[in-house]
Design a protein around this nucleic acid. Structure first.
Lengths: 158, 158
DNA sequence: AGAGTGTAGTTGCGTGTACAATAATTTGCA
DNA sequence: TGCAAATTATTGTACACGCAACTACACTCT
C-alpha cells in the first residue's frame, strides 16, 4: 500500500497569497507585453535583445541563450528566425566551434531596443513597481530569490 | 513635438525585485504544471475543474468562465473540447438562453480533481509557500492585490 | 588514427492560444 | 410589432512553443 499522509491544506493567509498571485500573474504579463507592441516587439523578443545588448561583444551562443531565456533550443531557433527577418539580429557561425551559431544584435536592433526600453521601464513601473512600497519591493525580491533557489536557480548578484 | 520626459530608471532594489520576479515566474509555473501531469491534467484543465467544482450547481456559462479564467472564447471552446473528450466535463444547452452553453463537471471530473488537489496543494507548498516566512506570505498577497487593482481586478474577499 | 560518446542547432509534428469572421439568439427601441 | 444592435459560442487561420528525430561537429580514450 502507498504511504498515506494527510494533506496540509493552505491557511487563509496562504490561500489568499496563492490565489492573488495565480490570478494576477497572467494579466500582469499580458499588460507588460501589450505595452511593448507599439515598438513591434513581443516580450520574448525584448528579452533576447536585452540579453544580447548586455554582453560585451553583443553576441552569444544559441545554447547559452536558451539557458538564460528558459527556452527550448527549437523555440529559440524560431524566435531568432523572426528577429533575423526583422533585421534586429544576425547569425554568425563560430570559427572556434563549427557547431555553434553566434547570435549578434545589429545596429538596428540596438536602436529599436533603445527606443523600447524607456517605455518598458515605464510599463513595469506603472503596473508593478509604483504600486508597491519600498518595503514590499524588497520583500518581493527576497521572495522570488527564495523560490528561485528552490527551483535550482542562483539569484542575481546585486 | 512630442512631450519629452526623462525616464525614471529602476533603483537597484527595484531592479532586483523585477528581475527576480521575471526570471523565476516562468519556471515556477512550469514546475507547478509538471507536478500535475501525473493526473493527466494541465494547469489550465485543473483551473477549469476547480472553477466548476466551486459553483453551487457545478455548472457555468462559457462566457463567464472565459472571464474568470482570463481565456479567449475560442481558447475556452477548445480547452473544453479536451475536457469533454476526457469525460471530465459535459456541455448542456441552456433552456433559459438558447445561445449559451453550460459547462458542467461530471462525476469522473470531480473524482479526478479530488485526486489531483492534494498533490497540487503539496506542489504549491513545495515550490512557493513553504519557502516563505508568514510575513512574506502576507506581503505576497498584499502585493498582488495591489497589482491586480491596478489592472482593474477586484481582490478576492478573504 | 579511429570508434564511440557527447554537444549544438535545425526541422517535423502536435498542442495550445488569440484574432477575425460567422451563425444563432436575445435585447432595445422606434 | 419589427428591425437594428448586442451577446454567445464556434470555426478557420496563424503563431509560438516543446518534444523527438536528425545532422554536423567536437571530444575522449585506447
Amino acid at each position: 500500500m502507498a504511504w498515506m499522509t494527510t494533506t496540509r491544506w493552505l491557511t487563509p493567509d496562504e490561500m489568499h497569497a496563492w490565489r492573488a498571485f495565480a490570478q494576477v500573474n497572467g494579466p500582469l504579463l499580458a499588460a507588460l507585453e501589450s505595452d511593448l507592441t507599439d515598438h513591434g516587439l513581443s516580450l520574448g523578443d525584448y528579452e533576447v535583445l536585452v540579453l544580447l545588448s548586455e554582453t560585451t561583444d553583443h553576441q552569444m551562443r544559441m545554447c547559452d541563450m536558451s539557458q538564460h531565456l528558459g527556452l527550448s533550443p527549437s523555440g529559440l531557433t524560431r524566435r531568432l528566425d523572426g528577429l533575423v527577418k526583422a533585421g534586429y539580429v544576425e547569425r554568425l557561425p563560430s570559427t572556434a566551434d563549427r557547431r555553434v551559431m553566434l547570435a549578434t544584435i545589429t545596429r538596428i536592433g540596438l536602436d529599436t531596443m533603445a527606443r523600447a526600453v524607456p517605455d518598458h521601464v515605464a510599463s513595469v513601473r506603472l503596473h508593478l513597481i509604483d504600486r508597491l512600497t519600498p518595503q514590499q519591493i524588497e520583500v518581493l525580491g527576497t521572495i522570488f530569490d527564495n523560490v528561485g533557489i528552490g527551483l535550482g536557480r542562483t539569484p542575481a548578484i546585486p
